[in-house]
Write a protein that binds this DNA or RNA. Structure first.
Length: 651
RNA sequence: GGGGGUGUAGCUCAGUUGGUUAGAGCGCUGGCCUGUCACGCCAGAGGCCGCGGGUUCGAGUCCCGUCACUCCCGCCA
């Protein structure tokens, strides 16, 4: 199915210039060969065909789908049901484009037909059944953009199954409509080709993931939706417990503890297409409230084992749905600190070829006093170069500079190279020798430029990363034709919490520190503690963080120590993670896992900029479901039963 | 909680330094049309210019406030 569904799912090459519909409709059987039945189509397709072959009693609604008929069926009497996509009324002749999930078929009727008066009344999105003969179109009326374009149905009988009121949102042509309208009438929006195709692709991606995981020896288990509130992380969604006045369930932010308990229970390899709930504000790539993860956990594994299990699944599913784009053959492993130094972020977009470098030595004691003084003042300070191949014009450099100022930076120093020399104020100040040395280190040539960020890298790395991204985009250096994966490894176990002036977990308190208990006990100072790494990793694709994962800490004594370092005493740990701690005391296998975000994978594979384009029934940014009217008020009786009294804000 | 953008017909948008009766395209309704597939042609309906206040002889236009949507920051172990 895989290669073929790719072809069928490919939109652009087959995009119908006029109807905006795919010429190769979603999941339709191929005419010749006939084996090419994609999922979804097959079941009903087979049934229909069988019933048709029995001939005497045609199916109540259809003998074929709207994407199915070809020249081979010319002469047959068929029955199709679907939506009226478009009517073209020529007075003496009337065309109806009939649409269903599988495609589009043109039906035609003439005034002599007894059904003509009814046909004239048809409006967009009415649901109808059409019965009639398949006829070949004459050569000059064939529509080559439609898979069914060689035939049409001469309407014999016409039945209206369901009328449609005037549409708040047209399906045909997919004109731009406000998000609010699209969400309120989501069922109409979903009929549109683009969304319909995205949702189908999502379904196929999930089916593929599931199949790949099962083939790799993982078992799918369900974990509770009503569970206990967990102290760390995001805000919980709470559900009042009727049987326990004053107490609440929480929806799981992720099945994190459950999947570890599954390992401790001896099931060895777990996965789940897991819903996760976090009551945090939305972003374009983040649904408010709920999202899905491919949740994975494995026993008796090292970090390397997790990579070797997960990498083929991700690579495989991306290759399957990439529609020709290249997918990284072997995901490079980049230590966290190296990622920050080279890319200014822990989720680098490796399609961007720019790699930043430390060029402090070229500025130390140089005539460019601003940088030279910075380097003298504090040993931690550095100067980083952001090479900008082909960016060697004053106009571009100035544009970058004013962008930086708009970002609240003092500016963005630069040198651009032409006629064998470096130009710009920085080059003037450091002189030709240092300028040439810089150029050589960075491998730049005439027509290129380089930008500089200076100060304490901990403070400017993020901005430098943004500059790198911007340079890459503005200069068209980003190779859009690939999915570039990498593993980011060796995340620090702890980080400095500036707000509370203390050490805190940088990621997940359940991660195993590299070096184990010894490492935690041997660290003498905050600095040494902050240097401890964890078996904690991310997988990143095209600058999108798909997932975090870790080898878990399966030893209670390490857990106690780690929490102690982060400033939580024993009692807190026992109270908050009692179940987990208890489980660790009765024989826990070493284990680890990961949980790639499914919505983000689908977004990448659909080329969608917004998560609502790959979600069936999304909420808006205020976390409201405009179609169902959620959240909603509830009755006084419901509240009473739950022992809840509202205490609403005044305004 | 904070910042940016947007808000004129069902939709996409135009609307001059503030000046008569607020326009276009698409859609909708009606009529005509026998080969269209973004069909074509003719006619018509459709507006609290997001809402409230202010400045002015006069506000779609200027000012203040507010609301809605969206993007971002905070937040997302």
């Amino acid at each position: 199915m895989t290669e073929q569904s790719l072809t069928n799912g490919d939109s652009r090459a087959f995009f119908h210039p006029i109807t905006n519909r795919l010429s190769a409709p979603l999941c339709q059987p191929e005419p010749e060969g006939g084996v090419r039945e994609a999922q979804g189509a097959s079941a009903s397709g087979h049934t229909m065909q069988k019933q048709h072959d029995k001939a005497s009693e045609p199916h109540r609604y259809r003998t074929h789908t709207c994407g199915q008929l070809r020249k081979a069926q010319v002469g047959e009497t068929v029955k199709l049901s679907g939506w009226v996509h478009r009517v073209r009324d020529h007075g003496g002749l009337l065309f109806i484009d009939l649409r269903d999930h599988y495609g589009l078929t043109q039906c035609v009727i003439e005034p002599e037909s007894p059904e003509f008066p009814l046909a004239e009344q048809l409006r967009a999105e009415w649901v109808v059944t059409v019965e009639g003969q398949v006829v070949a179109r004459s050569d000059d009326t064939i529509n080559p953009d439609l898979p069914t374009g060689e035939i049409e149905i001469r309407i014999g009988k016409l039945e209206v199954l369901s009328k449609a009121a005037e549409l708040p949102l047209p399906v045909f042509g997919e004109p731009d409509y406000p998000e609010e309208t699209r969400l309120k009438y989501r069922f109409l929006d979903l009929r549109r080709e683009t969304l319909h195709r995205n949702i189908m692709k999502r379904s196929q991606i999930i089916a593929s993931l599931r199949q790949r995981m099962i083939e790799a020896g993982f078992f799918e288990f369900q974990t509770p939706i009503l569970t206990a509130s967990s102290p760390e992380g995001a805000r919980d969604f709470l559900v009042p417990a009727r049987l326990h006045p004053g107490k609440f369930y929480a929806l799981p932010q992720a099945p994190q503890q459950f999947k570890q308990l599954i390992m401790i229970a001896g099931f060895d390899r777990y996965f789940q297409i897991a819903p996760c709930f976090r009551d945090e504000d939305a972003r374009a790539d983040r649904s408010p409230g709920e999202f899905y993860q491919l949740d994975i956990e494995m026993s008796f594994v090292t970090q390397e084992d997790v990579f070797e299990a997960v990498e083929p699944v991700l690579r495989g599913v991306f290759e399957e749905f990439a529609e020709g784009k290249r997918v990284t053959a072997k995901f490079p492993r980049i230590p966290y600190r190296e990622a920050i130094k080279k890319y200014g972020t822990d989720k680098p977009d490796l399609r961007n070829p720019i790699i930043m470098e430390d060029v402090s030595e070229h500025f130390r004691g140089s005539g460019f006093k601003l940088f030279a003084n910075l380097l003298d003042k504090d040993a931690r300070n550095q100067v980083w170069a952001i090479p900008a191949p082909t960016g060697g014009s004053r106009a571009f450099c100035d544009r970058m500079n004013s962008w930086a100022q708009g970002e609240g930076q003092p500016g963005l120093g630069y040198i651009f190279f032409k006629d064998g020399a470096g130009s710009g104020p920085v080059a003037k100040n450091i002189g030709p020798k240092r300028t040439a040395a810089l150029r050589d280190q960075l491998g730049l040539k005439d027509g290129d430029a380089v930008f500089f960020a200076a100060g304490n890298p901990a403070k400017f790395a993020e901005f430098a990363g943004q500059a790198r991204t911007r340079v890459g985009r503005e200069l068209n250096l980003i190779d859009e034709d690939q999915f570039a994966f990498c593993w980011i490894v060796d995340f620090p176990m702890f980080e400095w919490d500036e707000e509370n002036k203390k050490i805190d977990f940088s990621h997940n308190p359940f991660s195993m520190p590299q070096g184990g208990l010894e490492a935690l006990e041997n660290a003498k100072s905050d600095t040494e503690l902050l240097d401890i790494l964890a078996y904690q990793y991310d997988v990143v694709c095209n600058g999108v963080e798909l997932s975090s994962g870790a080898i878990r800490n399966h030893k209670p004594e390490i857990m106690y120590k780690a929490f102690e370092i982060a400033g939580y005493d024993r009692a807190v740990l026992e109270q908050k993670f009692g179940g987990m701690l208890r489980a660790l005391q009765y024989g826990a296998p070493p284990h680890g896992g990961i949980a790639p975000g499914i919505d983000r994978m689908v977004m990448l594979l659909c080329g969608a900029q917004n998560i609502r384009e790959v979600t069936l029934f999304p909420m808006n940014q205020q976390a409201e479901d405009l179609m169902m009217g959620a959240p909603s008020e509830v009755s006084a009786a419901q509240l009473r039963e739950l022992h809840i009294r509202l205490n609403l804000p005044k305004s």
